[in-house]
Design a protein around this nucleic acid. Structure first.
Lengths: 183, 183
DNA sequence: TTGTTTACTTACTAATAAGTAAGTATCTTC
DNA sequence: GAAGATACTTACTTATTAGTAAGTAAACAA
């Protein structure tokens, strides 16, 4: 029954995105799953272990998403990425980077390293997507693809944060402009 | 001696920006100031009271900053705003919105409301700045000034978060592009 | 059938959190 | 110089936290 383990990671992922890593406890996981907090420690001895599992899951989700879009035109790939953020926005969630980066200094070293790796690979993917799209004449922008990728990721991340405070129109406005600026 | 009170707010402000609102304790404030945790409660009975004082201070800083730049050309005003974020970046801090928005759901109601008010007034100021600059022919951009203001604030906020994880070059890249896109 | 592993539970611990009640020294006001 | 107010301290409480040690019931393996 790896079922429980997966449920724990899934719930932890949700909790990180809604409350933040330092603001949820093992009780927040144990209660909804109707297990004891020691059961959570059975699978994830420390909170850092659980945090790592959540980031790893995010990396996997990202990779499988990317793999599914690989054959699409680059603008469609980018739209899929934006749609995945829109989905989070609708469920009043922020992304993992948006949630963990403000707490970065308080995170255990291994989580920090994994988060750096995650962000680097997201940026690398968007950069490649922009480069390919530019070559095909789908995208048009000034500056390097890497800089533009940073701008896009930065905006998607922040738009989820701002949406929380200012309402969901913030996300719509920002994501529309992002595409308009490069198409 | 309102000195202690001011020191408490100043330290709380720093702690929110470096660790996050839910990740610092009254001990983190009492120890460096060489006072007891009850002394902090003397000035700020609850943590929400302290949080409100910090947001209020941020609003005041913002307003006095803005007032000082009022007579400058709009591009200079915007550069000042960006410089204030650069300053935070250099000190490895995020802005108050970047720090508090991920924890928004866990914040007491009065802090949520004050934060909404703060973000709305920042966006309103940038919007006005862009509008005036556009009229004078200083700025050139597509779409409404309000949408563009949202984009700029969103980027500044996120660039501080990303800088933490990916290094300070993230901020430089993003802020440069922001200006290039409208000048 | 016996032994071992899996997946937990019960029942804790030690640390830390926010918050409070009551006391005290110093400064201020009349 | 007496009476408050100010700015704290000492000494708590109660709740919650991550984490652990030891036990158990069921599934599986030899």
């Amino acid at each position: 029954m790896q079922d429980t383990k997966e449920k724990i990671v899934g719930l932890a992922d949700q909790l990180i995105k809604t409350k933040g890593f330092n603001s949820f406890s093992y009780k927040d996981i144990a209660d909804p799953l109707a297990i004891r907090n020691a059961a959570v420690h059975y699978y994830f001895p420390t909170k850092a272990d659980l945090g790592m599992a959540v980031i790893d899951q995010e990396i996997n989700f990202m990779n499988t998403g990317i793999a599914n879009w690989e054959t699409l035109p680059e603008d469609q790939q980018l739209r899929h990425l934006i749609a995945s953020f829109e989905n989070k926005c609708n469920r009043h969630m922020v992304c993992i980077m948006g949630s963990l980066s403000p707490d970065y200094n308080t995170l255990p070293e291994n989580m920090q390293a994994r988060l750096r790796q995650f962000s680097a690979s997201v940026i690398a993917w968007v950069t490649k997507c922009l480069e390919n799209g530019q070559k095909k004449g789908i995208f048009h922008f000034k500056g390097t693809a890497g800089d533009r990728a940073l701008l896009i990721v930065s905006n998607l991340l922040a738009s989820l944060l701002l949406s929380r405070v200012m309402g969901e129109t913030a996300f719509e406005n920002i994501s529309k402009q992002l595409l308009d600026d490069i198409l």
